[in-house]
């Protein structure tokens, strides 16, 4: 960052001060670090104990372990449903993030450029975020009902017949009722990776997830839009004018100027939406349940049912730990590598 007051004397003084302050800053961060650590690591340690136990129950906290120690994790890896859940969560998160972030960005640009009715559109796109997932899940279940939902609108409005006329195919999507998994690579993986024979599910994209992605994006796209609107508003007007003078106009302005400036906002949005995607539970539970052949099942639903319906607390705890470790491996190093200087 170019800085007018960077004289050697000041730099030396600044470094001295910073060195002196470092422990103080650490000290000031310590209380919240400590309490978060208790709520995260101490509680997780307890969960690890449950996950390794042979028969832990809420009313009888018996931490005697399984033999071998990894037995519960082994059971989990060989569970076809959990495999489907991992597949679904990856597919769902990727599509949901892409749709919400990309559409959120475009909505932000469109709303930002509006001269009037800005409040209306901003409000409309943001309002779904205020609603409880339990109710929106039911509404989306109705909307994706292949008989009386959106399909009925398509039929009565003539869109269906026009589509059929043009393409020769009927426009009757099954939405969440679809059992189809496209792009299955499981047989390929079984052949090329050692131990691939444990794969019991089709590793592809379950079409039923498309409807779920649409519903979830409906609810959170507005949040992404708001983050980007905040970012767009933070770009000073002179930047725009300078780039205009340089001959960057329209799309090129957005690609070469706006998008780089919005990167810290995109990063925050991606992290927050990833966290939402991985905890996605109420919406899908109310909307489609587990789906045909677990096409829309999620790790959250698996943990919930394994712990409180099947009463296998140890397996449920193991599943939640596997999820935590996978997320930590994917998301956290990415964040940690980006110091505050880089995002500036």
């Amino acid at each position: 960052m170019p800085d007018a007051v960077t004289t050697p004397r000041v730099v030396a003084c600044r470094q001295r001060r910073r060195r002196r302050r470092v422990p103080q800053a650490a000290l000031l961060l310590a209380p919240s670090f400590l309490i978060v650590s208790i709520f995260v690591y101490v509680f997780i340690a307890y969960t690890v104990g449950v996950a390794l136990s042979s028969n832990w129950k809420p009313g009888k906290a018996d931490f005697s372990t399984t033999d071998p120690l990894y037995a519960n994790f082994d059971a989990l890896i060989n569970n076809g449903r959990f495999q489907a859940d991992l597949r679904n969560t990856v597919v769902f998160t990727l599509f949901f993030l892409t749709l919400s972030v990309v559409a959120g960005f475009f909505l932000a640009v469109l709303v930002h450029n509006l001269l009037w009715a800005r409040g209306f559109f901003r409000g409309l796109f943001l309002l779904p975020y205020a609603l409880s997932f339990i109710a929106t899940g039911v509404v989306w279940r109705w909307l994706f009902n292949p008989e009386s939902g959106i399909n009925l609108l398509l039929r009565t409005s003539g869109v269906s017949s026009a589509y059929q006329h043009l393409t020769g195919h009927a426009l009757q999507p099954d939405w969440t009722s679809s059992p189809v998994v496209v792009g299955d690579v499981s047989s390929l993986l079984e052949r090329i990776i050692p131990g691939g024979h444990i794969i019991q599910v089709q590793l592809g994209i379950p079409l039923a997830l498309v409807a779920v992605v649409l519903a979830a994006s409906w609810q959170l796209m507005g949040f992404a839009m708001a983050m980007f609107l905040a970012g767009l508003a933070s770009i000073p007007e002179d930047v725009r004018e300078a780039s205009m003078i340089d001959g960057a106009s329209g799309p090129r302005y957005y690609v070469s100027v706006v998008i780089p400036l919005l990167r810290p906002f995109a990063l925050t949005t991606v992290v927050i939406l990833t966290h939402v995607a991985l905890k996605m539970f109420d919406l899908i539970y109310a909307m489609s349940g587990s789906g045909i052949g677990f096409a829309t099942d999620m790790p959250g639903i698996f943990v919930y049912e394994t712990m409180f319906k099947a009463l296998q607390y140890n397996i449920g705890a193991a599943a939640s730990l596997v999820m935590l470790v996978l997320v930590t491996l994917v998301v956290v190093p990415y964040l940690a590598r980006r110091g505050p200087q880089e995002t500036a």
Binding site: R81, I292, G293, K309, A310, L311, Q312
Partner: peptide
């Protein structure tokens, strides 16, 4: 039977609907 058997039955029916 253990509650896990009921869950296994639900899971088996979920798969049965697909295959």
């Amino acid at each position: 039977v253990k509650a896990s058997v009921g869950q296994a039955y639900s899971d088996a029916v979920t798969l049965l609907e697909a295959n």
